[in-house]
Simulated assay, not measured.
Amino acid sequence: MGLAPRGRRDLRRALHGQRQRRHARRRCRRDRDGPRIVLSDLSIDAAFDDHEVVELVHDPQTGLRAIIAVHCTAPGPAMGGIRRMDYRSVEDALIDVLRLSRAMTAKNVMAGLPLGGGKTVMIDRGDPADPRQLAALGEAIGRLDGRYAGAEDIGTGPADMDVIARHTRHVVGRPASSGGSGDPSPTTARTVLHACLSALRRPREAGALEGIRAGVQGVGKVGAALARGLHALGADVVVADASAGRAERLADELQAAVAAPAALLDMKLDLLAPCAVGGVIDRPVAGRIRARVVCGAANNQLTIPGLADVLHERGVLYVPDYVANCGGIIQVGGEYLGWTPDKVEASVTAAIARCDDLLSDARTSGLPPAAQADLVVARRLEQLLGAAA
């Protein structure tokens, strides 16, 4: 999530108060026979934020290995995507799911949803996903009794959610033909595009991005949609992806340039949009990045807290990822909450306006937008916890 120091302190203080109340009221439940996690690795310890549930799932019959993390349910049931990746180790998967679930708390609160933060990662080398493993995961999610609901993410899609839904009702993002809201990627790309326009201080009209050079790192479902949106508004687009073939196909479609993913970080750009996996901006990159604006769809773009301040001091405007990329979670969150399409659309429109206001307030105050956003989340959590006390 890349919390700025002040916002991070306030957020941890709010969550600490939440957990004190929860323990006092004996609402925190632990599975006595479940696997135990020893947080001996420093990077794991830094990612762990007193999560409410961290469940390791292993199904020997199907070979499923997954981790479900519920960070916070103060606003409501936790929701977050089901990510399927070839992690190098269980430790890497654990760090990722802890950080991602924590970020989902901030994203859902900032999006105005009555939902907390959670996430699932599947440690999987197969492609496509094994339906038997998806079924086993659905059963594991069902055992959480509604504390967490899953949705699609990197490596999964609406068809996978359909398989999981046969084993639990706590999953969203199913195909429209199955009564779901479908692929949320276009809605995510929409809010990211609006955030880019707001950060660049360009109007939402034809030709608005003429003269703008934009680099999109990661051109999967969301990144490709964003690149098309930027191109349609007149931007000179450079695309990069771990799959050279995928980048070249999109470049041919848009008549765009192609760069290596790492090289894109060093290019002189008006806009850098990280849209692949997180952790692309570490301290060395933050110290040399040449883009004027960083605004993309990837979660946890910054590797450590405080890098938003480093970017800010160098004159680089970083739009917090959980503010920019909230469109998809609003769509599937609305599906879970039973919202009408009109209500979902109104919520997306409101989120776009909040991003505009956040960036405007940051310009006025001189604070990094990340610090502003973290304070908004912390205050909202304090209000929720105070009301529940």
Rank of each mutant, 00 (worst) to 15 (best):
S178L: 14
A199R: 02
S178V: 01
V163R: 00
L193T: 10
T187I: 08
S177C: 05
D153S: 06
H170Y: 15
T187K: 04
E152A: 14
T188H: 04
S185C: 13
P158A: 10
H194L: 14
P175C: 11
I154M: 15
T187G: 00
V172Y: 00
P158L: 14
G173V: 09
S181L: 05
A189Y: 02
P203L: 00
R166V: 01
A189G: 12
A195L: 14
H194N: 09
E152M: 15
G157L: 11
P203T: 02
G157P: 08
S178D: 08
V163G: 06
A151D: 06
R201G: 05
A176P: 01
L193N: 11
D153E: 13
E152F: 02
V171L: 07
D153T: 13
L200F: 10
T187L: 09
H167Q: 12
A189M: 09
D160L: 06
A151P: 08
A159N: 14
D160Q: 07
E152P: 15
A176D: 12
V171R: 02
R174M: 03
A195H: 08
L197R: 04
R201A: 12
V192N: 07
T191V: 07
A165K: 00
V192A: 10
A199W: 00
A195T: 10
T156N: 07
A195Q: 13
V171T: 11
A195F: 10
L197W: 03
C196T: 12
D183R: 04
G157V: 05
R202T: 01
I154R: 11
V171F: 07
P158N: 07
R166W: 01
P175N: 08
S181D: 04
A199G: 03
V192G: 00
G157S: 13
L200G: 11
C196M: 13
T168C: 11
R202C: 04
P186S: 02
T156Y: 11
D153C: 06
S198M: 11
R190K: 10
L200E: 07
R166S: 07
A151F: 01
D183E: 12
G179C: 02
E205V: 09
P158F: 08
V171A: 04
R202K: 09
G155A: 14
G182N: 03
V163W: 00
T156K: 06
P203C: 03
V171W: 06
L193P: 08
A195M: 10
T187N: 03
P186A: 10
S198C: 09
G157N: 15
T191R: 06
S185G: 14
P186D: 13
P175Y: 01
H194Y: 13
H167Y: 14
T191F: 07
R166N: 10
T187M: 08
H170S: 13
C196L: 11
S178N: 10
G173I: 05
L193Y: 13
H170G: 01
V171Y: 01
S177R: 14
D160T: 14
P158C: 14
R201D: 14
S198I: 09
D162T: 15
V192P: 01
R204L: 07
R190F: 05
S178K: 04
I164W: 03
G179W: 07
R190P: 00
P203M: 02
G157C: 14
M161N: 08
I164S: 09
D160K: 11
R166E: 12
